[in-house]
């Protein structure tokens, strides 16, 4: 690729990113999704279920909970990715963009960048809300930044899954229904809200080995350091392997689905 075409590819991705972020800023419902919903989730789990769930981490349940909400939110934020792309494909917006001589990567890259930024805002809101209700990092600034970075990386990997789903299904309702089918079990049957030991054995077998559990354990480990419930860094390596694997599989699938939109 020549330097010129690389510059243009950057320009195109940036213009699409700007467009997506502008839409996001101007639609109140999207802001509610990014800010209000995770706030409510945090408060809900903190005060409604928190008392009933005993956990052995310093600072109690709120410290256990927050990395879980972070991980779950990163996953759920990708629903919007799938839905936006499905609508754009359905309405023919993507067709019209493809008739312009723009870089082929622009639409997907612009989506990833904008949604990645949106996700970052959401994650920071959750940390802030968490701080207001008693959450504290116990592993230094590096751990805190590491937690946000890992959540962001995991969210972007799932964005690739969502981009594929949105472009393959191309129907808002279908995408919505399908999104719930895979996101709910993955995030709830994990270590996000309750220790795995409290689940029945057959459920544990799934929960222990699925990526959301690895990621959330790793988030917890970075936020809190070694604790009886987040006792080693293995989860971090496993998380990274999952993230790389998910991107390696689903980014090409999303690109292929994008080429087939017409």
């Amino acid at each position: 690729m020549s330097e010129q075409s690389l510059r243009w590819a950057g320009n195109d991705a940036w213009v699409i990113t700007w467009r997506n972020l502008t839409v996001w800023r101007r639609v109140p419902a999207y802001l509610v999704f990014t800010v209000v919903q995770p706030t409510i989730f945090t408060l809900l789990f903190r005060y409604v279920f928190g008392g009933a769930i005993p956990v052995a981490v310093p600072g109690g349940y709120v410290n256990y909970l927050l990395p879980g909400v972070i991980g779950q939110t990163a996953a759920f934020a990708t629903m919007a990715t799938a839905i936006s792309l499905a609508i754009e494909a359905q309405k023919g917006v993507i067709d019209r963009l493809r008739v312009m001589p723009i870089a082929r990567s622009a639409v997907l890259l612009g989506r990833l960048l904008a949604d990645g930024f949106r996700m970052l805002v959401t994650l920071l809101v959750i940390v802030a809300v968490g701080y207001a209700v008693g959450f504290r990092f116990h592993n230094g600034v590096g751990g805190a930044l590491g937690m946000i970075a890992l959540a962001e990386a995991f969210g972007l990997a799932l964005c690739c899954v969502s981009m594929f789903i949105g472009l393959a299904l191309r129907q808002e309702e279908a995408v919505q229904a399908f999104g719930l089918i895979w996101l709910f079990p993955l995030t709830f049957v994990s270590s996000a809200f309750v220790p795995l030991a409290s689940m029945p054995g057959w459920l544990q077998a799934f929960a222990v080995n699925q990526p959301v559990t690895h990621v959330i354990n790793a988030l917890r480990w970075m936020a809190l350091g070694d604790t009886p419930l987040s006792h080693n860094g293995d989860n971090l390596w496993l998380s990274i392997v999952w993230i790389v694997g998910i991107i390696a599989v689903f980014l090409p699938l999303a690109v292929r689905a994008y080429r087939r939109v017409s």
């Binding site: 320009n11 195109d12 213009v15 699409i16 700007w18 467009r19 502008t22 839409v23 101007r26 639609v27 309405k91 023919g92 917006v93 067709d95 019209r96 963009l97 008739v99 312009m100 001589p101 723009i102 622009a106």
Partner: peptide
């Protein structure tokens, strides 16, 4: 190309829409 599909983004003004297309060109 114009017609049955549209490149217009509802949340942008008419001017912003045209500017966006210009920058993509």
């Amino acid at each position: 190309l114009a017609g049955q599909s549209t490149a217009i983004v509802d949340e942008l003004s008419g001017r912003e829409n045209l500017e966006m297309v210009g920058r993509l060109h």
